[in-house]
Structures are given as structure tokens and as C-alpha cells.
Amino acid sequence: MAIKFTRDHEWVSVDGDIATVGITSHAQSALGDVVFVEVPEIGRMLKQKDAAAVVESVKAASEVYAPISGEVVAANADLAGTPALVNEDAEGKAWFFKLKIANKAQLDGLMDKAAYDAFVKESA
């Protein structure tokens, strides 16, 4: 299934009832060198828009929100040791966490790639 995007610069990729979440390539380039990532604990129940993770560059700290509701079933342990991964491969290896989707309908409210790109361009 195609990747969806939020206005808060998260991406979601859905496989069955599991959603993988990360921050967009645009977001990582705006942040600059990422130096620290904190991912949520497995088992945590997240509601859509809950603060789920933290990503820090030297001079900025940002919350990463849950794009949709669900239970955290996996978190990317590599990010703690290698935060630079976020700069290298934001929309691939540097996924933040996986959710067991609670409500698939919430996906419909998110943007597709073209809409997100237009959104980024517009807000620049």
C-alpha cells in the first residue's frame, strides 16, 4: 500500500493491520543533524496526535506524533545508537515505531505523496 503523510511531517506505511511510522525526508533536512531519538515503549496505547517519540538536533527538539491511533508493537532500537540514520534514510531504515492499527478510517484523513509535496511547497 502507498505511503501516507501528515501535516506534522510524519509518514505512515501500512502493511495489513500494522503501520510503520517515521519522519519525512523534508523534516530531517529542516532539523539538521539529528543527535538523539527517543522511541515509545512497546505496548503503549497511542491515540492519534499523541506525542509518541522525540527527535533532537543540536539546536531543536521536536515531538513526533502518532499519525493514527494504535498500540506500539515495535520500536526501532537502531536509532538510539545511530541517530544519524534519520538524516541518511528518513523514509526507510530510520522508521521510528510500528503500530497495530486501531482505526483504519483515520488513514483516509492523511495526505498522499503528491498532496504532501504540494503542502511542503506551499508552506515554504
Binding site: F36, E56, S57, V58, K59, A60, A61
Partner: peptide, 14 residues
């Protein structure tokens, strides 16, 4: 000075 994202001038209310 490092790890300053913990501090008020960056995180403000957090």
C-alpha cells in the same frame, strides 16, 4: 555546551 535541547531556551515549556 551540549545536550542543550534539555534547556529552557530550546524546549521552552518542555
Amino acid at each position: 555546551l551540549t545536550l542543550s535541547t534539555r534547556e529552557q531556551h530550546i524546549r521552552r515549556e518542555k
